[in-house]
Amino acid sequence: MKILIVEDDASLSEIIHRALVAEGYVVETASTFFEADSKLAGYSYDCILLDVMLPDGSGLHLLEHLRALGKRENVIIISARDSVEDKVAGLEFGADDYLPKPFHTAELLARVKSVLRRGRTAGELSISLGNVVLKPENRVVTIGGKELSLLKKEFEILLYFMQRPSHVIDKAVLAEAVWGDYADDSDNFQFVYAQIKNLRRRLADAAATIEIVAVYGFGYKLIVKE
C-alpha cells in the first residue's frame, strides 16, 4: 500500500510518515503544491493525505488536477479548518474523508485503514481481529462465529478499539470519541471506566482472543492474546 503525504509542515509530515511506516505502508512525502502535483502526475498511490493550505496553492486544486487526470486515488483531507462548509467543499471536490487538525495518530490510521478497506472490498466492511468479527453497518459482533450482544456504548467502544488495535488510547480521547462533545473537559472518567469494565467482562465471558488492557494508569490498548 502506497501513501503520499502532502503537508508543508516538516515536523507533522515526519511524524505521520513515521506512524504510517510503522503500520507497514510505503510512504512518500511532498511539501509543496508543485512537488505533489509532479508526483501525482508520475506515480500512483493508494491513498493521499492532503493538507488544504499549501504555500504555493490550494490542496483543493490538487484534487481537481487528480480528477482531471482520471485518477481515482483515495484522498483524505487534513485541514486546520474545521467547519461544515470546509468539509462539504472538500468532499464535493472528491475527497473520501476529512480530518480536521489537530488529530490523534490512532484516528488518522483508522481513517486511512477505513478508506483503503472501502476501496478494496466494496460493501463488505467488517473488521476482524483474533476470533472477533465486527460489522459496523449492522452493528453485529461475533466471537468465534457466535453473536455477542452489546449495549450501544459498549459496541461503540469496541469499534473504536478494533479500528485502532495495539495503539494506546487515552481515556479522555475515548470518551470524546464515544460520548462526543458532551465529554469535553470532564474531570472524572468513571463513566468510561465502568463501560470498559463491562465490555472486558463480556469479551472474556465469550472467550474472545482479544483483550483491552490498561496502560500507564491513564489509557487502554486492544491486544490480540498470544
Partner: peptide, 13 residues
C-alpha cells in the same frame, strides 16, 4: 492547530 497536532502525535508516538 498544526503545532498542537504535532505535539499530540509525538506524545502518542
Amino acid at each position: 492547530q498544526t503545532p498542537l497536532a504535532i505535539i499530540g502525535n509525538r506524545v502518542e508516538w
